[in-house]
Amino acid sequence: MAIATFQILRGDASNTRVESYSIEVSEGMVVLDAVHAIQATQANDLAVRWNCKAGKCGSCSAEINGMPKLMCMTRLSDLPLDKPVLLQPMKAFPLIKDLVTDVSWNFAVKKKIKKFKPRKPDNPDGTWRMAQEDIDRVQEFRKCIECFLCQDVCHVLREHQLHDQFIGPRYLVYTAALEMHPLDVEDRLEDLKKEDGIGYCNITKCCTKVCPEDITITDNAIIPLKERVVDRFYDPLKKLFRIFRFKK
């Protein structure tokens, strides 16, 4: 059986090191299996998050040879095993220990986004009618498993650390899902422009590239939101109209 070597970042924020572990590789193995094997036999205290092991919960996000990925969906056979596989935690968030980072900022951001506000029910029994074609695009956004890999790869957060000024691709997708929900009547455009910092996104599409759910984050969510913001706040005709109306 083949042997693979993993270099895993160990330690907490105050003290990190890279440790090497070698394990036997079996057919079909994914990176998370390797981490579990190392944890069970060589490093019982190796910290890692995981749940479903099937790409559905978005817990086991990490950087594999520098690429943000889900460990449960990355097969060893797709990696060059002739050299060590480097495993690091997500870089955009503070390190807790080993492969685990403090992602609580994401939960705090979501709470600030105005919640779903439906229009009055269409039917006396409190229900609505919606056509499938009207919800298709929102269903794409609702596939999000909140793995935060898009946040991790976004240079505004990763390089510039502007967590206090920019909500990141995940929450732009979340806002898009609310804004484009056929029943929603809330208005989030001003927030998008100001607090959410949508202008920081310069459409490099890194987020789309790493999304394990293949959500077309930039094209389908962020760009349409940017267009809405531009229409509202930067349309010269509308601006003139507003000034005119204000004077009157």
């Binding site: 439906p118 919606m130 499938q132 929102v138 269903q139 609702r142 609310l178 029943l183």
Partner: peptide, 18 residues
């Protein structure tokens, strides 16, 4: 189930939009 829809869930639809 209907309550979930009022909280934003989007289930697949029938041809009549149910």
């Amino acid at each position: 189930v209907k309550e979930l829809e009022a909280w934003g869930a989007l289930f697949d639809r029938t041809k009549d939009g149910l």
